[in-house]
Nucleic acid binder design. Sequence first.
DNA 1: CTTTACTCGACTAAAACAATCGGGTATTAT
DNA 2: ATAATACCCGATTGTTTTAGTCGAGTAAAG
Lengths: 159, 159
Amino acid sequence: MRLTTKGRFAVTAMVDLALRGGDGPVTLAGISERQRISLSYLEQLFGKLRRHALVESVRGPGGGYCLAKDMHTVSVADIIRAVDEPIDATQCGGRENCHDDHRCMTHDLWTKLNDKIYEYLASVTLGDLVESQHVKNIAVLQDKREAAQTPAGKSAAYI
Amino acid sequence: MRLTTKGRFAVTAMVDLALRGGDGPVTLAGISERQRISLSYLEQLFGKLRRHALVESVRGPGGGYCLAKDMHTVSVADIIRAVDEPIDATQCGGRENCHDDHRCMTHDLWTKLNDKIYEYLASVTLGDLVESQHVKNIAVLQDKREAAQTPAGKSAAYI
DNA sequence: CTTTACTCGACTAAAACAATCGGGTATTAT
DNA sequence: ATAATACCCGATTGTTTTAGTCGAGTAAAG
Ligand code: FES
Ligand code: FES
């Protein structure tokens, strides 16, 4: 199973990109600073994302990256698949040969686990993440407002 | 995320154990030979399984390991948790601090993925695996019988 | 009192991962 | 032109994790 910080960074970076994709290309330097991810590492990741046609690049000053597709059509699974090797929880990698050229007793278990993981990651789109991010920001703003109104603070939680 | 051959071996070994737990303790040497897992490695794994009360040991000649509970009450998740560190797909490990002491934008995504994985692994018991193993053995026998009846072989699949 | 078989911690080799580096190229602005 | 911006890319490195070994020990059976 391959699910590493590489994939996590890629998703984070893509959310950042989607959040400010509105006005022209977004630079890696910006993402690097906002998300605290090393610039060279981002370059590596975005190379793969571009080769998998998830983003498009614009070179030169004023350049950067844009989403290549609508954010609602890009799933988290797509992103992770682009930067990590394909997700696979089986020992044999689908070859069904890990016990003397025979499928082992647990092959089906891992295959089905793969399906479950993939199913979930494919069900969440970049758009979903962006939306939930907006909701959260609104929630945070409301929290702050409420906190300002009731300086007693936590007591509000016990109504 | 931690889902390694260690966990896979542990599950395989436990299935082996459950399959022949009927008549007394099963030796690691036997499991080692049947499943092609190094004996010393098995010793390491069963140490953990015992400390997590999933198996019981009997020392001395004629000794070995038995299941400590009914095989239908032991889930795959229990086994993997016993030998690997706890499964966790988040970056922060639940501390919600990977972006400046703040929960990052993707924290919820990974948390939910964790839940999905855990939910599935917890839904499959050792008993289920043993049963599906029996079914498969019967299926294999049937396959062989059919193959013997129709030497043309694969053609049977196209009925 | 010897054999079997579990017990335990320390250790090592190999692989995977995270991250960096250095030298590019395309584009724009001056 | 040429300087500055920003993407492009392969090679390399240091670190961590994983897989697996080793050796010395203990309990029980016969
Ligand atoms: S995991 Fe596929 S044969 Fe064992
Ligand atoms: S994964 Fe938990 S805060 Fe980022």
